[in-house]
Design a protein around this nucleic acid. Structure first.
Ligand SMILES: [Mn+2]
Ligand SMILES: [Mn+2]
Ligand SMILES: [Mn+2]
Ligand SMILES: [Mn+2]
Lengths: 220, 220
DNA sequence: TAAATAATTTAGATAAAGCTAAAAATATTT
DNA sequence: AAATATTTTTAGCTTTATCTAAATTATTTA
């Protein structure tokens, strides 16, 4: 059994190693979790001793297959709770992450199975992220950055960086959410900002930075 | 903001002081929480410093009005989660307490309000205990021990000691649950065991000890 | 490539929540 | 009213998860 803190580290290291190189740096973990690098080093030692990570001093960390399994189950819980909060309690999709960050640490096999059933075995969470099944299998569909589309491309928003509350709030305001249909109208050469049409209604300009943090699946 | 441990102590002290004398002993807390008396003394100091308890060395502890308010809100959360687990996730009524013991510590005003609404503002939990409202008001109805009834009395089971897993399991087996209608058929003088009829169906004998731990409201 | 800079680890400290063993206060028996 | 037993507190220790400051290793730059 892992402590809440161990679980948070493990999940972070899993996420960082999925979204980039396999070797995760101490600083990147520290930055994400807002703890000091020395604290990260301590925790890496603990998790390595439990064979959930491999670590080479001064070089970097990568997750073991046992660590991966555990991390995926935490992510499963996190995303199922997000669905519950969003669909049943009617939270907005930018409010669910923080609460799920706590709920994910409640350990009770039966609880999560019953929750899954109650929610009718959802496949994606409110941010468009896939929900691993009981066996840890994840159904991943190819996603690209909205910033990579060309003029007249159409797409469905499938994912948004949910670690930044400000971004989520902004997208809420301009009515972009998971499942929104977006058409690229124009791309401004000067600053790479783009003009888009959301759900065949409002047209807005968004900065390149924003477009970089919205992942979509192309539909033509 | 209180830690999980502080919350558990505060709730325990509130419960002990409700069900008995106002002065709660260090040993009784220790017994209930399965920690050592010395650990209890430490925590009493911490909570006293926060003005949630009053404590006189070697004499005893009682809860302050601030402490009471906080304790009641924790109990509110506990019981609402129990309703969720029982009604929505279909847990048995003897399984919900343990899980709610963890869920009650998730602190988010909006979460508990939305949960309350979602559950349609329930008045009692699956063990028959009243659920305090947002303002901490509790609607308490008079309850008596099943062991205090006389022959031919009828009653509704309203409450069962939910701290003892074994008792709950046993009652589940003989199909006694909150809301069950019970008629006292016979009282055995020798050991005060009683013969009861449950929901106008099965007749069973239960020991005096069991009857002492079932609270009911008389219906005639 | 040597110096400067950045990243990482180590050493040592702190706070929370528990523990054991011993001391002190209170309660109960002879 | 002593003696004995029980309850409670104190003193000191442990583990977990943080931190700061200093040391070490790796990387970048001049
Ligand atoms: Mn978390
Ligand atoms: Mn999510
Ligand atoms: Mn609890
Ligand atoms: Mn209950």
């Amino acid at each position: 059994m892992l402590t809440t803190s161990e679980e948070n580290y493990l999940k972070t290291i899993y996420n960082l190693s999925e979204s980039g190189k396999k070797q995760v740096s101490t600083n990147s973990i520290s930055k994400f979790l807002k703890t000091k690098p020395s604290s990260v080093t301590d925790m890496i030692k603990k998790l390595s001793a439990k064979k959930l990570l491999y670590h080479k001093k001064y070089k970097g960390t990568n997750i073991s297959s046992n660590g991966k399994k555990l991390a995926i189950q935490i992510i499963r819980k996190h995303r199922l709770w997000e669905v519950f909060l969003f669909e049943k309690l009617n939270f907005k999709w930018d409010e669910v992450h923080k609460i799920a960050e706590e709920l994910e640490h409640i350990t009770n096999e039966k609880l999560i199975e019953k929750l899954d059933k109650y929610l009718k075995y959802p496949k994606i969470d409110p941010h468009g992220d896939p929900i691993p099944n009981k066996n840890g299998e994840i159904n991943i569909k190819p996603k690209i950055k909205l910033s990579n589309l060309l003029i007249n491309n159409n797409c469905i928003v499938s994912n948004v960086n949910d670690d930044d509350g400000n971004l989520l709030e902004y997208l809420n305001k301009i009515k972009i959410h998971i499942g929104s249909k977006i058409k690229v109208f124009d791309i401004i050469e000067y600053d790479k900002s783009i003009e888009i049409e959301i759900d065949s209604k409002n047209k807005v300009f968004i900065s390149n930075r924003v477009a970089e943090n919205i992942l979509v699946t192309k539909i033509n």
